[in-house]
Structure formats: C-alpha cells, structure tokens
C-alpha cells in the first residue's frame, strides 16, 4: 500500500493520500470503500448503465430519475466534476467489470468514457493484475505472435479469437485432450463444467505447491519460486519491466521453470 497506492508521496503529490481523491465503485462495503473519498454502491450488473450515465453528464446531458444503477444522480454529477477537475486521473478496473453483465462491452464503454474525459484532462485506464506477471505474458506473447492471450497454434500459425480459442470455452466444449497447467490453479477458480473436463483428460502441472489442480493431475513437475529462488524479468501492471531478485537458494535439485521447458522442448523435438 505504501509503495504505489494512494499513500505514496510522489514528486507531484507531496502530501501523499491528502493530495489524491479516491472513488470506489463496488456493490459491497469493503476495506477499500472505507478509505475512499466517495463510494458508489452500484447495483450488481449495472456497470454499463453507470458508465453511460457518467458519459451523458460529461457530454452535457441531464439525467432523468433520482437514482441510476442504484446511485443518487447528485453523486454522479459530483463524480463527473471531480474527474474533470483532476490533473491526472486513472480508472483501475478488475474482474467485476470484465465478468459482470455486458462483459467486454463494459470495457468498450469505459474506454469511451476515458476518451470523453481526455477532452478535459489527462485520464487513463488500467486493468488490475492478480498474479505478478500476467502483463509479462501478454507482452511476451504479443511480441512473439501479435496477440496478447488465447493463441491457437494448431494450424501452424497463430490465431486469436477469444470465445473460440480461450481456455474456459475450450474446456467447457470439451475440445482439448491434454492440459498443461503452469503455476496457476484452474481447479480452484474455473467454472464447474470446465473442471469436469479437466478431470477427464490427462493433466500436467508445472507447480511448486499442492493445489486443487495438482489433485486432478497425472504429472506434477515442481519448480523453484521466481523472485525468491530464481531471478528473472516481470512486467509491472503499468507495463514497466523489472528484474526480480534471487534471495535464497531453491531446495536441492529443484529446477526453475525455464529449465523445465527447455528440457521438455528438446525431448519434444526428438519425438516429433
């Protein structure tokens, strides 16, 4: 919290938290809403509606009704004014936006809101990342194939069509016949229908811990912790690459992920 979030004292924000305004959109009360200047307690699945209302106000229209998406219209006017007056604003969004009703269309609307706001001030938007190197993978894959995720190499060249070539859809439709899971835990986070297919097919886990996914696996290949036992590069969620440090030695004989893939590629080359 001290390094990058609202408390950090920066060159332009000497007083840290007091020089910043935090607006939180969340249907629930959370620790984050408690430290916010303004909490928009939105009704679930009304994200698109709220963004549209903000854009309407921003573009000089008047809102009809007392509440929109569960939020008093006066608050919506206030948020728009706050955003317009900001020197530099940023919209951070998470899976509540990408996965609630409307999905990627909500992001589409949010991008347009940011475009509208840039008529007044500098404003950006950024997805919040869970694991430390989600962005790194999107960067490396884009650099190698031109697409950020969900790439299908089955025709010998990269294809990208989320919904068709994305993991959960492929699992739910039962199209893949082997899964190699690398340092993630779909067994704990995926929808039931996807997990049912994972249970049916051979699964390889490249993973240091016992997880619900390793319980569904046929082969578990443990690896060393990057950033603790191995060094390497990771991309911060704003796209800045940083070198992770090796702090201690891995347990004896445990290989890094990179080494495992290198050996596997050599073996595959011999088999093909």
């Amino acid at each position: 919290m001290g390094r990058y979030s609202v408390f950090a004292r920066g060159f332009f924000r000497e007083r840290g938290r007091r020089d910043r305004t935090v607006v939180v959109v969340d249907p629930r009360e959370t620790t984050t809403t408690k430290l916010a200047d303004l909490h928009l307690q939105i009704e679930p699945n009304k994200d698109y509606e709220l963004i549209s209302a903000l854009r309407a106000v921003l573009n000089g229209h008047e809102l009809n009704g007392d509440r929109i998406a569960g939020i008093p219209v006066d608050t919506i006017y206030e948020v728009v004014e706050t955003c317009k007056k900001a020197q530099f604003g940023e919209l951070f969004f998470g899976m509540g936006v990408t996965m609630s009703r409307g999905k990627h269309r909500i992001i589409d609307n949010a991008i347009n809101l940011i475009i509208d706001l840039n008529a007044y001030t500098k404003f950006g938007l950024m997805p919040m990342r869970g694991h430390y190197n989600v962005n790194g993978f999107n960067q490396v894959l884009s650099w190698l194939t031109g697409y950020p995720y969900a790439v299908d190499f089955s025709r010998g060249y990269p294809r990208y069509n989320p919904g068709e070539t994305s993991t959960i859809d492929l699992l739910v439709r039962g199209e893949v016949d082997v899964m190699m899971n690398i340092a993630a835990d779909p067994g704990a986070h995926f929808p039931q229908k996807a997990i049912e297919h994972i249970a049916k097919i051979p699964v390889i886990s490249v993973e240091p811990h016992q997880t619900p996914t390793t319980e569904l696996s046929n082969i578990v290949i443990p690896t060393a912790f990057t950033g603790v036992e191995v060094s390497g590069v990771a991309y911060r969620m704003d796209g800045v690459p940083l070198e992770l440090k090796k702090v201690v030695e891995p347990p004896e004989g445990v290989l890094p992920d990179e080494e495992v893939f290198k050996i596997m590629r050599k073996k595959i080359e011999e088999m093909l």
Binding site: L144, Y149, V151, S154, T165, V233
Partner: peptide, 27 residues
C-alpha cells in the same frame, strides 16, 4: 494454461514449446 507467476524468460520458452506442438497457449 497459466504462465502468470513465472518469469518472462520462462514464458518465452513455454510459448515456443506451444508453437512446436501446435497447442493453445493462454494465460
């Protein structure tokens, strides 16, 4: 699938492995 808790160097090897075998590569 996965790739989000490993280094970029390891991600590169994993993606190239996926290309070798004609796989779906996703994070």
């Amino acid at each position: 699938y996965g790739f989000s808790s490993i280094s970029c160097e390891a991600q590169r090897e994993g993606i190239l492995l996926g290309e070798d075998i004609g796989a779906i590569v996703d994070n």
